[in-house]
Amino acid sequence: MPALRIDGLRKQFGGVKALNGVDLTIGEGEILGVVGPNGSGKTTLFNVVTGLHKPTAGSVTWGGTDMTGLPAHAVSRAGIGHTFQQAMCFPGLSVLENVLIATEHHGNRRAGDYPWTTPVELLDFVGLSPLRDAVAGPLPFGSLRLLGLAMALAARPALLLLDEPGAGLNDKETAALAGLVKQLPGQGISVCVIDHDMTLMRALCPRLAVLDFGTKIADGPTAAVLADPKVLEVYLGGEL
């Protein structure tokens, strides 16, 4: 049984159909990659699932519960976490306080078995402990990405949506991030990740879904999807 089930999801902004009837499932303990050209609807998909946008039509079901159109904080408390494309933080607060705040609103899910219960443990996990007292705003981009991950994990998700976690990172940072993300299914956290970095996606995701103009055009094992002529045509310009 899939953890998250998306059925016929549509989102229209005026005349633009950002999502045009997307069906997608994410299984428990899975790392699913979502790729597609710019403007294909990847981020909109995340925004609709996480409650930042209300869908025009379709449904989002999470562990059997209908989540369609719930506000962002309710989605988070139900166990769907996400990180943002723009590497967000609470800029005027310290790194530790950023994570501390995020640990305080998880709605007591997984009280017994969650691997990181204190902000310090989360900072240790992502490797930001040395910067715990630094102000978050001026941190280098790579550290902000890690902080975003620590904060999302602090909210105790069972599914984590990562929106371009590798954007703006160098190869070493990307590899470190991939190492962290790979550990998440083992801790009971499914992952859905959007990124353009094919090296990262190949390394992370056994399964890949491809969006184009708000429609899913492929979904399956990564190698098969990347060899699909339709995918090569629309996304990769005909060759890989």
């Binding site: 409650g51 609470f90 800029p91």
Partner: peptide, 14 residues
């Protein structure tokens, strides 16, 4: 303060 600093992020953590 979380609300003050970043409403979108505050919502995303519950």
């Amino acid at each position: 303060r979380a609300v003050r600093e970043n409403e979108k992020l505050a919502g995303s953590i519950g």
